[in-house]
Design a protein around this nucleic acid. Structure first.
Lengths: 341, 341
DNA sequence: AAATAAATTGCAAACGTTTGCGGTAACGTT
DNA sequence: AACGTTACCGCAAACGTTTGCAATTTATTT
């Protein structure tokens, strides 16, 4: 499987009786080179199937045109949708992408960060692993190359951050329930103060406040791991109360689906007795019955804008690092779980 | 954002008053170097945070330790699970991974193939885009660097191919239905003769044959695009027949879910009147009700073995290229959609 | 025609690493 | 004392590209 060598500038130059530098400049459209030679060179290059050795180039120019991406877990539809956006946008702009996982392990996260810089990536796109406590290492890397955070971000890291308008989206979702006539709206959120959970909770509170509804701590439930099972479990608790809520806002589709399963089991009518709204617009939200009202997060848009900002920072001589938050608009998708006729 | 330079061999050598080559050899544990100097060098290297410039190294040695991966669509849970396996196994073995999408576009596929080789990847992992007609370009690349195919493969390309035991899995699924007492088993498959569809169909036929059941062409349905919608549509056709089937084997979870939705609408009892079995064990299969019996495909195992075989080919001087098919075992997961008590 | 300016092109260094080969010093052997 | 061995180390070339600067040719001006 001997790797055959590619055509090089030297070979082209020998063939054309030109210097290597002239050939190089001709291919790069340097103004110093006459139109005639440019043509000649390009034609032969095409004939011989010339392709620049990217390693030699990256080696010399100290630019690799590679972006590093670190996510907690790639095997997650929302994540892979973001990655799709990242890959497509990067390729569009002549960059390639190296992807790595942190598995929600903070140590692994800084490991990856370091190997990536060692590798010479031009910049890094990262979604923080859950419970990232110590950002010192990240800051150290940030001093050397640009980083853009997305989805799971942290205000402790001064760089541009791409998120969805969590707060507003949650507000919209709850407002939608209120407009339906619901007055006792429960929320299922995360115990851990993750950025996302906090913001969504804030949106929930703001909606209640705007419409003058009381905040009942009893129906504000939290769980460590926001899964289908726990959604189910917490909903059972809600159902056991003497005064049941008339709607559930789950911070996650999975939790919402768990809620629906629980309601189903106890033959509670959805949405008449209790309406349900989720967050994510995962595939499952259309599979479950009744179909789930949820917030659509445009994953590929997130990925694309993250790439745009990163490349911007890479290519422009660059201003100082500073926190800049970019919000991607979401939209509420109303389905049967909150559709009153 | 000026990229600060890393420490180089030269700097180490100057500091230690040794030659660059000695330092290099010391770090690489060359036998020519005394234990004492090795120690000295390594200590200073650690102190100064030395990390070899991978581009310079790759440039010189013509080995990049990068694997290229091409898949039709990353935003697909099964695919991203495979990728997870690929990334993890590759990192374990000191390789990095560049991922790219073909979007089921044959032209894009060869484009990616070419940029990847130009980029200098050591090998390529690929899942073929649907309807790959012309494999000439792939063969051309195969002459230069090793390729390993997975999931969507083709016998026209002489290389190692990692697949699941499609035929056997399908056989097991249908056998399971037969053991349930079902005698008139419909199948929903793809029109296009994809490798996967063909094999699963073959398994279906073999099971019928083994148990002496007749093959009824009427209840062998095909569709171009095997989606939820089409699963629904074809099931409607099955329901309109004077002699309905008593089970449906859908080649895909999505099609099976469509089938369940259709059956639900017409109040057909699952599995008593008609049982349903899918293929993939997607998340949805547990969300839909009744929960779907399906074939579990261990995505990360596929990814991991693909990487193992590829690296094997890269690092061993290599024998000739030839077709070698490796089958990963699946297992049938029985759920309510085929659970008769 | 000479001098100057403009348009092209070539030279050579540099990027950081690996490696074949030659060199030195110390040691053991006759 | 002369030689051969061994252990350790340095020189320098090479990988393919880009680029500042010098060199050459051509065109323009006086």
């Amino acid at each position: 499987m001997s790797k055959k060598r590619n055509t090089t500038l030297k070979e082209l130059s020998k063939e054309l009786d030109l210097s290597i530098s002239t050939v190089s400049r001709a291919l790069n459209n340097h103004p110093d080179i006459s139109q005639a030679t440019k043509e000649k060179v390009k034609i032969l290059a095409k004939q011989l199937n010339y392709a620049p050795n990217l390693f030699a180039r990256g080696f010399r120019s100290r630019e690799t045109h590679i972006l590093g991406v670190i996510v907690p877990n790639i095997a997650h539809l929302f994540t892979s949708t973001i990655l799709k956006g990242i890959i497509e946008e990067a390729e569009l702009r002549g960059y390639r992408v190296i992807i790595s996982e942190s598995n929600n392990d903070e140590r692994k996260q800084v490991d990856m960060l370091n190997t990536m810089t060692q590798f010479g990536v031009d910049g890094i796109l990262m979604s923080l692993s859950r419970k990232t406590k110590n950002v010192d290492e990240v800051l150290k890397v940030l001093k050397r190359i640009p980083i853009v955070l997305f989805d799971k971000v942290s205000s402790k890291i001064p760089c541009t951050q791409i998120v969805i308008n969590e707060e507003e989206a949650a507000f919209d979702a709850v407002e939608h329930l209120i407009e339906l006539g619901k007055k006792r709206i429960a929320i299922i959120k995360e115990t851990e103060n993750s950025y996302n959970s906090e913001k969504r909770y804030a949106g929930y509170l703001r909606a209640l406040k705007k419409y003058g509804l009381p905040v009942k701590n009893k129906i504000i439930l939290s769980t460590e791991d926001i899964s289908i099972g726990n959604g189910r479990r917490l909903t059972n608790i809600l159902l056991s109360m003497k005064k049941r809520p008339d709607a559930i806002f789950a911070i996650t589709d999975n939790a919402a689906i768990g809620a629906i399963k629980a309601l189903h089991k106890f033959k509670v009518k959805i949405p008449e007795e209790i309406a349900v709204v989720g967050f994510s617009n995962s595939v499952n939200s259309t599979i479950v019955s009744p179909a789930l009202t949820t917030v659509d997060q445009p994953g590929d848009r997130i990925g694309r804008t993250a790439v745009r900002f990163l490349i911007e920072e890479i290519e422009s001589p660059s201003t100082d690092v500073m926190t800049k938050t970019v919000e991607i608009k979401t939209s509420l998708i109303v389905r049967d779980s909150s559709l009153m006729v």
